[in-house]
Design a protein around this nucleic acid. Structure first.
Length: 433
RNA sequence: CGGGGAGUGGCGCAGCCUGGUAGCGCACCUGUUUUGGGUACAGGGGGUCGCAGGUUCAAAUCCUGUCUCCCCGACCA
């Protein structure tokens, strides 16, 4: 993509309303613009990242055997009246009335809808286990939205729902998601700590929150430092009971539940850190199936309420969490897996014909080789181009100017390490290809 | 929901106390200049000062109401 023909409205000064670094950088790097409190427009750079994250989440869900569907954002109140949550959910639910005075709502989550779907479509134990997910916008009318997209009112979530015949099977489904989540966050280059959580009002006894370590996190965690050194690559492939048991035996608690006096981890092995919750998984049994009448006929011919679990990943929140975990004073530092572009090509001297010709040529060659490149071909000063490119945070920068061209070299800069090397054109293309 | 703060060109702000034809920096446009980390100079465009009402000869400025946004806390699959 040529920057001169693109739309990345960067901002030089820090917007006054943005307090935390990911919010500031997303605004400054032209990824988002605010529409109203907790509601954002996703600009091209933000959307590219959002989609890349969603795709990784999707691939890992599919790998775990989940099946993608797409449920609507607008739901009928009737379903929520059946589950009993229509009144219980309170003001966080955005309620809407249509032209026929029917009560509707903008979905904050989809247990009711998926349970209703299941009830109408599945009748036999032979169709179990079943795991359905979608990646859809949610709306929760938070009292105080803040931190940009990290706690917005409208947000993109992957939510998954499992249906099983009995507890043993449900627990296996839960564990499949547990592993899929660790694998997903590992692919994003994040250290995610699975923290035991209260299933709370939602009921059930199996629940974990997945917390990304970042200084600006909202929760304080205490955990066994052995978790950090656990080899996540061992999770690729089938789930090994022992590995899983080991993983789940690691100690990790939120501050409120951490009891220093009775902690099983030796003080020397205990670490504390701030975390951002990016995922939450629950087993909740028959809470919704009973309320809404979702039954299957078992092998013995008797009807039983289906066992359920739900599993959420905050896809849009992950964009912010990734920035919290990957930035410096100059801007964002994208991990390659989610970078909007892999390479930024900087033409230092637009008005120098041979320099521009060399850049144009290199750009075309990169496109031929399928190197994902953003080409800064604007007629602007070198300083502002460097500053913008650092701000946007593409993993690699190729700097082309008359000085280098005289020597026949191109400069390649690694955004994360800051390391610069001078390469020939062939070496450069080989390295990036 | 409790407490605090703010609404003045796209962004960051001054002006308000002490009413008198709206200003600065950045950004933008034109020209010249410059060019390896946000170059310099000159010229230019853009704002009914959140909205509504009131006081006054006169309101960004004073008064009343209202909306929105932000921060702290509480809350939060």
């Amino acid at each position: 993509m040529r920057l001169s023909k693109y739309f990345i409205p960067t901002i030089k000064e820090n917007p006054s309303e943005a307090q935390i670094v990911s919010h500031r950088l997303m605004l400054r790097a032209g990824m988002i613009r605010q529409s109203s409190a907790g509601i954002y427009i996703w600009l091209p750079m933000g959307l590219l990242v959002l989609n890349k994250i969603a795709q990784i989440v999707r691939e890992e869900q599919n790998r775990a055997g989940a099946i993608e569907v797409l449920m609507p954002t607008i739901q009928p109140a009737e379903l929520w009246q059946q589950s009993g949550r229509y009144d219980a959910y309170g003001k966080e639910m955005l309620r809407i009335t249509d032209r026929h005075d029917r009560e509707m709502l903008y979905g904050p989550t989809n247990e009711e809808m998926i349970t209703d779907l299941f009830k109408n479509a599945v009748k036999s134990y032979k169709d179990l286990p079943l795991s359905l997910y979608h990646i859809q916008w949610k709306f929760r009318d938070e009292v105080r939205p803040r931190f940009g997209i990290m706690r917005g009112r409208e947000f993109l979530m992957k939510d998954n729902y499992s249906f099983d015949l009995n507890f043993e099977s449900a627990k296996a489904s839960y564990n499949v998601m547990y592993v899929a989540y660790l694998r997903t966050f590992a692919r994003l280059g994040l250290v995610a700590i699975p923290v035991r959580a209260d299933a709370g009002a939602i009921g059930g006894d199996l629940s974990h929150e997945f917390q990304i370590l970042a200084d600006t996190g909202e929760s304080t965690l205490y955990y066994d430092k052995a978790i950090e050194s656990f080899d996540l690559s061992s999770l690729i492939g089938d789930i090994d009971e022992q590995t899983l048991a080991k993983l789940q035996s690691f100690y990790a608690m939120e501050e409120e539940k951490h009891d220093a006096d009775n902690c099983p981890v030796a003080p020397a092995d205990l670490k504390t850190a701030k975390g951002i919750e990016v995922g939450h998984i629950f087993y909740f049994g028959t809470k919704y199936s009973e309320a809404m009448g979702a039954k299957v006929t078992g092998p013995d011919g008797k009807e039983v309420f289906v066992e359920m679990g739900s599993y959420g990943i905050g896809v849009s929140r992950l964009v912010g969490a990734l920035i919290e975990a990957n930035h410096d004073e100059n801007g964002i530092i994208w991990p390659e897996a989610v970078a909007p572009y892999k390479v930024g090509l900087i033409n230092l001297r637009f008005k120098d014909e041979s320099c521009t010709a060399a850049c144009d040529d290199l750009y075309q060659e990169m496109q031929k080789l399928n190197i994902d490149v953003l080409y800064d071909d604007r007629d602007a000063g070198a300083g502002s181009k460097f500053a913008d490119m650092d701000l946007i945070g593409l993993p690699w920068q190729v700097v082309v100017g008359p000085k280098g061209l005289e020597k026949g070299v191109y400069e390649l800069k690694n955004r994360r390490s800051g390391e610069r090397v001078e390469l020939s054109r062939a070496e450069l293309l080989d390295k990036l290809g």
